[in-house]
Write a protein that binds this DNA or RNA. Structure first.
Lengths: 254, 254
DNA sequence: CGTGCTGCCTCACGTGGCGTGAGGGTCAAG
DNA sequence: CTTGACCCTCACGCCACGTGAGGCAGCACG
């Protein structure tokens, strides 16, 4: 029987000598022979087994699992099919990784996190430092505030543009509903209210229907909000507040 | 200034507390404040930095390199491109591995016709009896269907393995073309489309370019096909469809 | 027969990116 | 004033080896 020493095996299968020692240590692949002077001697059978190990290893399967599947007494074809499946899923993961990198690259190229000036340009008078400070004083120690700060901090200019667009869209829905003469308790107004809530929930902080009521009340009570709304359409602030309450009632009733 | 404790940060960014401790230890991300009692307090600046770290980590970049990127010049884009290449290389390796496994499988295969169970094992969810039946209802009275049935009945397991491998190879070509940024009307994409057609033609039923268009359209229209393709790469279904049409156009023009 | 040179052996510690306690302080709620 | 959920700092464990150190084995050359 022709046998091979560690070095030869290492060259043949593209692994290091240390790796073979390691596999021997943990009992994953013990050479079936030893020379008189203690040299490891690998037979053909050892080689085929090692071949399997190498394939599994390239799939980043942990060694104990490899030992398990090789010990399971399956035929070679079963191993190969299993290996194939593992490779394919790994391929999928790597594909996702590539697209993730691509997205990161894209963002790196065009849109670094938005600066304060860019925000002002976007939101105009609606975005004021002093207002920010006041808000922090009022809400600063709440979870919602922290969550909001954490998220918005990472938003890029593009993100903000999209958020702004969504806000405008929802506001347009409110205006349309109001203009059409539908009451604030109507289906369209409630749908808009729900979308408004969802949007805050998605982009800023967890917001349930109960807390949304308080926000709605504030839109009326706080002149700066009321003014912003009423500039879009007279009476809109109150209308939005009522729609929010109606929507919250509906979800509470269910 | 709003600050966050380890637990909050961990929840927000989906890492463990120990990881934050580790990043602090190695100096990759040290919280810029500490409470009187020694609690780590992370500021928003820390959060944005950590977010960068998390992103890079998802790309399997070692921590010291991440430190280099975040600490050194602003050349994050270059690093991302390098990472992309690394991942692409691994993708290539895995593709080679797949074909190697497929060749090994082919050798292992016996000559007996494949059973239904074996087919399922091979094609996974892509092969469903109900889908087979639906296909028969839709196409059962066409020549193509009969031809396909006649041929595939005689195929051995080894045959199926090879067909699957060929399919995967063609799909890989499409993915590569898509990734490279080449349009679906490009040479590589059209070549892949032609190979796809040729393959169906060889293994299943006579398929000319005109009918191939309809198949392509179905890849987009039928969610089951679209999903299978888009799992390989987002937008692949549409890309394949367009490549098929472009290829058909070319052959019609000649 | 000695002298190198290469290859093999066995310890045994190092590495990266954390996981997993141990032992003990801190903080808000009840 | 307790209780339970957090937080702290060590410090060792894990995997799959890498990387020597110190010492035989085997073969060619002088």
């Amino acid at each position: 029987m022709t046998t091979f020493t560690v070095g030869q095996v290492a060259d043949l299968l593209g692994v290091t000598v240390r790796t073979l020692h390691h596999y021997d240590e943990i009992g994953l692949l013990c050479p079936s022979e030893r020379s008189a002077s203690g040299y490891r001697l690998y037979t053909q059978t050892d080689l085929t087994r090692l071949q399997q190990v190498v394939v599994y290893r390239r799939l980043e399967m942990p060694l104990d699992e490899i030992a398990a599947v090789l010990g399971g007494g399956e035929d070679a074809a079963a191993h190969l099919r299993r290996q194939r499946e593992v490779v394919m899923t790994r391929l999928g993961e790597l594909n996702e990784l590539v697209t993730a990198i691509d997205r990161a690259l894209e963002r790196e190229m065009s849109e670094k996190p938005a600066t304060r000036d860019e925000m002002k340009e976007l939101f105009g008078d609606g975005f004021k430092d002093e207002y920010q400070q006041e808000a922090e004083q009022r809400w600063g120690d709440t979870d919602a505030w922290k969550q909001s700060q954490a998220r918005t901090n990472a938003y890029t200019k593009a993100d903000w543009e999209q958020i702004k667009a969504e806000q405008d869209a929802v506001n347009a829905e409110f205006v349309a509903a109001l203009r059409s003469g539908e009451p604030a308790t109507g289906e369209a107004a409630m749908a808009a209210a729900e979308r408004a809530r969802q949007q805050i929930h998605d982009h800023f902080y967890d917001l349930d229907h109960d807390f949304h009521r308080k926000l709605g009340d504030m839109y009326v009570a706080d002149l700066r909000f009321a003014q912003t709304y009423d500039e879009l359409a007279p009476g809109l602030a109150q209308y939005v507040r009522d729609a929010i309450h109606a929507n919250a009632d509906r979800h509470a009733g269910q």
